[in-house]
Design a protein around this nucleic acid. Structure first.
Length: 560
RNA sequence: UGGGGAAUCGUUCAAUGGUAGGACGCCGGACUCUGACUCCGUUAAUCAAGGUUCGAAUCCUUGUUCCCCAGCCA
């Protein structure tokens, strides 16, 4: 017998790494990097990449760098850098002193470009953007060579230096790789390596007016950092020949290898930066950290835990198939984690008053309730009980069916952590006919124990003492979009779920929750997991519903 | 249309010529002072057609479908 162990993660990328290790590549080193561009907040799709890159580094005793891929000043900012640092750290990963910026390599990259010119592998082109596009050809027709393709090395060197010096207007020249205008792979048709762009960079300010393109900067940044496995998403597959071409001409010996995997798609949300930015800019959500957003910061505010997100990333696996992961898997991971950790509490979302007629007026008592049914070590808390309570409106039905286990006229139900009550009469609003109050009697014997006569009372409902309960606000979240794959729709805004946020302002939570600390999660019994929102003001907590509990009654009743 | 990728239960990942398996979901049941948790059970797939082989998801052939590429974005 062997000890049960959690199996080491395995996927096609790790297979490649292990094959390489066995073949003695990279001197047995494994070095990865997570290379976001700081032009937006990272989301659950990035989290997949973070877990992959850092996870591999940990598994093979290697390193994973955090590198900001900031080669296009338009849209990049320190705010985004800070958010990325905060989010990756929160996810639970550590890059130690290896925080890098592509912009720190600008001088070295420039030198590499000069070298490429000197070896005849790059040239300055005077074609404008339209002309470049026209001469690039199409999928079926080869491109035409630029008239500037065979400039002398000296002339190229001279103009490139003057590009850097700021002598030319934006777009007047580009530096292009001299590869093959007839290549069936369009990426290889003399791609642009540098462009002139007078835009202040959030880090280098006005130091540069030329900026390297992704294809040039990324592979060389990898090489400079000694990356062994450059893991990226599938859409860069066409760029791999260019990656190898550039590195092959500038870097001797041990070179990084690019491996592509399928990016994550999640049902009922969008995961493209462009679309996320649109949601924020056009105020369809309340910011990057809106709890409905699939951003890491949004999920954190919502109450998801790093452990749950990491578990999710491990569960979905890594492959090259296009995928659309069902959001219910994410929710499952969140519940699984929170079920273990979250202390239990009671909160009534839509209150209905209950008066216990045979309970002494002005009386009251304090019940000691377990914080976690499976973990007694989490202790107990005092919960006041009194003659007047609130219960959930849903927990009473005037004409219940046989399958309904809760309160109805003449029916008995157990109050969670307390006693059994029986509904004796109901009070209705004369005009609307709405039930506004229940009069019940309680069975004192059942406080803390089963009924003496052994009768079965299957229903258990939560409650809050009317006198002691804390008024709280609760925000209920549902999926942001009403269709599975809004990302595939051009006009995705049209499919926003109008019911994605419901704010409940007349809820009552048990008194122990009065001073709940922002960011902590609870399970409101029978309802779901809730997290204290930063909007919480002193004495007036605001709770976000992280995820509801599974609800088999809802299925029976056909709700939702 | 040229090039590059991918096709396995509803979803997703695995099986690396030798019993198609796991997770989530669905459905059913047990338990229960949370209609939660837990436990048990069930359902259900190799894109198609040929071929090679004792044996094919895996190899070969032909076809089909889907994704990516024609930014001085990444």
């Amino acid at each position: 017998m062997t000890e049960p162990t959690t199996p080491a993660a395995s996927d096609f990328i790790r297979d490649i790494i292990e094959d390489g290790l066995r073949a003695g590549q990279h001197e047995g080193r494994v070095a990865t990097r997570f290379p976001p561009e700081p032009n937006g907040y990272i989301h659950i799709g990035h989290a997949k990449s973070v877990c992959l890159n850092f996870g591999i580094a940990m598994q093979y005793s290697g390193t994973c760098n955090l590198r900001l891929d900031d080669t296009d000043p338009a849209g990049e900012s320190m705010e985004y850098v800070e958010s990325i640092i905060r989010d990756v750290r929160w996810l639970g990963f550590d890059w130690q002193d290896r925080l890098f910026y592509a912009s720190d390599y600008f001088e070295k990259l420039y030198t590499f470009a000069v070298e490429l010119i000197k070896t005849g592998h790059a040239y300055v082109c005077d074609l404008n953007a339209d002309e470049v596009r026209e001469s690039r050809g199409t999928f079926t027709e080869p491109g035409k060579e630029s008239p500037y393709r065979n400039r002398s090395v000296d002339e190229n060197l001279d103009i490139f230096a003057r590009m850097r010096a700021g002598e030319f207007a934006d777009g007047a020249h580009t530096l292009r790789a001299k590869i093959d205008m007839a290549s069936p792979n369009i990426v290889m048709r003399d791609p642009v390596l540098y462009r002139i762009k007078r835009e202040p960079h959030y880090r280098t300010r006005d130091q540069w007016v030329i900026y390297p393109m992704y294809d040039f900067a990324h592979c060389l940044s990898d090489a400079l950092e000694g990356i062994t496995h450059s893991i990226c998403t599938l859409e860069f597959e066409n760029n791999r020949p260019l990656y190898d071409w550039i590195v092959g001409r500038l870097i001797p010996g041990d070179r990084p290898r690019q491996i592509e995997f399928a990016r994550l798609n999640l049902s009922y949300t969008v995961l493209s930066k462009r679309r996320l930015i649109e949601l924020v800019r056009k105020n369809h959500v309340h910011g990057w950290d809106d709890p409905r957003m699939p951003t890491v910061t949004g999920m954190r505010r919502r109450g998801y835990t790093p452990e749950a997100i990491r578990k999710f990333c491990a569960e979905i696996g890594v492959a090259k198939n296009d995928n659309l992961i069902d959001v219910s898997l994410l929710e499952y991971c969140v519940r699984e984690d929170l079920n273990e950790k979250a202390p239990r509490a009671m909160c009534v979302l839509r209150p209905l008053k209950v008066v216990i007629d045979n309970y002494p007026e002005g009386g009251g008592e304090v019940l000691e309730c377990q914080n976690h049914p499976q973990h007694p070590e989490l202790g107990t808390r005092p919960v006041p009980f009194s003659r007047e309570l609130y219960i959930e409106r849903d927990d009473f039905m005037e004409n219940p069916s046989k399958k309904y286990h809760r309160l109805g006229p003449g029916r008995e139900v157990r109050l969670r952590n307390a006693c059994i009550i029986k509904c004796e009469s109901i009070v209705k609003d004369e005009r609307s006919g709405e039930v506004v109050e229940l009069h019940c009697t309680y069975d004192p014997e059942t406080l803390g124990g089963p009924p003496a006569d052994g009768r079965k009372v299957p229903g258990v409902i939560h409650w809050v003492s009317a006198e002691h309960g804390a008024p709280v606000e609760v925000r209920l979240y549902d999926r942001l979009f009403s269709i599975q794959d809004p990302g595939s729709e051009e006009d995705f805004i049209k499919y926003l779920n109008p019911g994605s946020l419901e704010i409940l302002t007349s809820c009552y939570a048990e008194s122990s929750l009065k001073n709940a600390k922002s960011g902590t999660q609870y399970q409101f019994e029978r309802l779901g997991y809730f997290c204290v929102d930063p909007d919480t003001a002193a004495g007036r907590p605001v709770f976000n519903r992280v995820v509801p509990l599974r609800d088999s009654w809802a299925k029976i009743a056909g709700i939702r």
